[in-house]
Amino acid sequence: MPRDLPEQIHQQRRDLGERIRVLRSGARKTQEAFAEMTGIDRRTLQRIERGTSDPRFSDLLLIARALEMTVSDLVQE
């Protein structure tokens, strides 16, 4: 179900994915280990980190919990 989104939205999604990747790496977790910690499928996590997928709010909650932060802190610009 493709959507025509403004480029700004695509960029923000990529920025969020990069932030998640950096925080995960800083926590010394591989994608596989992080996926296991969060219960999010590894392929889904890869798409989120690449910014090619819109994460569900529940995914953001799981990611933030695993990183010991709030969703607000996770998505801050």
Rank of each mutant, 00 (worst) to 15 (best):
E68S: 12
Q46P: 03
V75W: 13
G17E: 05
Q11D: 15
E49D: 13
Q46I: 12
Q46C: 00
I63P: 00
S58P: 04
P2G: 11
G39Q: 11
L62H: 06
K29W: 14
Q76P: 03
L74E: 04
F57I: 08
A35W: 06
E49Y: 04
L16Q: 09
V75P: 00
T44F: 10
D4R: 15
V22L: 06
R42N: 04
V71S: 01
R47A: 12
F57Y: 14
A66K: 05
E36P: 04
L74R: 03
V75M: 11
I9L: 13
T38M: 06
I63H: 06
L61K: 12
R28W: 05
R43F: 12
E7V: 11
D4L: 11
R65T: 05
R50M: 10
Q8P: 04
R65Y: 01
L61R: 10
Q11M: 07
M1T: 13
R13E: 15
S58M: 13
R42I: 12
D73W: 01
F57A: 10
F57R: 05
L45D: 02
V71E: 01
T44C: 00
R28L: 08
T52V: 12
Q12T: 11
T44L: 08
S25A: 15
L62A: 15
R43I: 01
L16W: 03
M37K: 11
L23T: 00
P2Y: 00
S53L: 10
L16K: 06
Q31N: 06
D73P: 04
G39S: 12
I48A: 00
S72C: 13
I48V: 12
G51T: 08
M1S: 14
F34V: 05
T38K: 01
R47W: 10
D41W: 11
V22T: 14
R56S: 10
L23N: 03
V71M: 05
M1F: 11
P2I: 10
G51W: 09
Q76H: 09
R19K: 10
E18M: 02
R24Q: 10
I40P: 02
E32N: 00
A33Q: 03
R43V: 12
D59W: 07
S53V: 07
D15S: 08
T38A: 04
E68C: 03
L45C: 08
L74G: 04
R43D: 12
P55N: 09
M69G: 00
E32G: 04
I63W: 09
Q76S: 15
R65G: 01
G17T: 09
L23H: 03
M37C: 14
P55H: 06
I40K: 02
L5C: 13
A35Q: 05
P6S: 15
E7N: 14
F57L: 14
P6N: 07
H10Y: 09
D41P: 01
H10P: 02
G17R: 00
A35K: 01
G17M: 04
G39T: 13
F57W: 07
L23G: 03
R14I: 08
F34G: 03
F57D: 02
E7S: 09
G39F: 10
I20N: 05
R14Q: 14
S53T: 13
Q8C: 12
M37N: 13
I48D: 05
L5G: 02
R13V: 07
D54A: 14
V71L: 05
G26S: 07
G39M: 10
L45R: 10
R21A: 08
K29H: 11
L16A: 14
F57M: 08
I40D: 06
R50H: 09
V71N: 04
I48E: 01
